[in-house]
Amino acid sequence: MIVNKKPSLQCISYILIMVFSLLIFSIAAAEEGALKAPQDDGKNAVSVDVKKDVQDAGNNEAQLTLGKKLFGERCVVCHGASGNGKGPAGVIKVMEKSGRVLEIHPRDLTSGTFKFRTVSTGCLPLDEDLLRTITDGILKSFMPDAKVLKLDERKALVAYVKTFSPRFTAEEPCKQIAAKMPKWVGSKDSIVKGEALYKKMKCPDCHGNDGSGNGPKSNDIVDDWGNKILPFNFRTGNLKRGSTPDNVYLTFTTGLDGSGMPSYEDSLKDEERWNLVSFTLKLMNKAEYLK
């Protein structure tokens, strides 16, 4: 952030902040026992937040210690102790039914680039995005679900995963994109429109005319790490993040950062993206998700 002001002012503000912070913390700590949690009073909500912040500050270290322990037990094998995605398990190869071999590289957590988000391209994933991926795992990639872990434990993992990239401390979170499915998604009309968009948006360049992931560009794509990747095959398909209409919509909207899949948030209107959802759900034979 850039601000026009005199240098001496900055020094003073630093000192002021220190003093203020100390003051608040001591007041809040003193009142901790006495404060009750008011439910509906707007003004009081802030003080509750303060209290929560203070507690969090205390819990933070414990949470990270827990996260580190769980990460060491469950995640290191693929993501590596330093989170760079080069764990001892290495690259996982999957031969699809069509015979093509996918190479799955575990995510390099140090770059702060994540595919499955509910925010625009280039944005950091929200905590709940990371929590969802950790909880549900990633289909087809052998990232297992973590439903055996308690919510607190999974949250601790989220907190620990965020320590690998400096982006999480340096950047502000983006606004969440809500996937509100219109009722007409999956209708004949919408599928026809979606099919036209599929062609118009040049999806077949990578995903092929029939959606089987063998378009003319399918062998040219590399990800941020220089690894060759293949486009999604709608025909055999379960989308890695899940094939519900919301997830398909979010993939078009947010893009899959780090991979070749770009964001269509600016190239297509909301309604058009939903039409594309109708068509691709049909390609994937997942119309049952609409019911």
Binding site: S111, T121, G122, K200, D224, G255, P262, D266, S267
Partner: peptide, 11 residues
Amino acid sequence: KRSTVYNLALP
């Protein structure tokens, strides 16, 4: 290492 800032579709 590369870290995607924007990946925009311009069909």
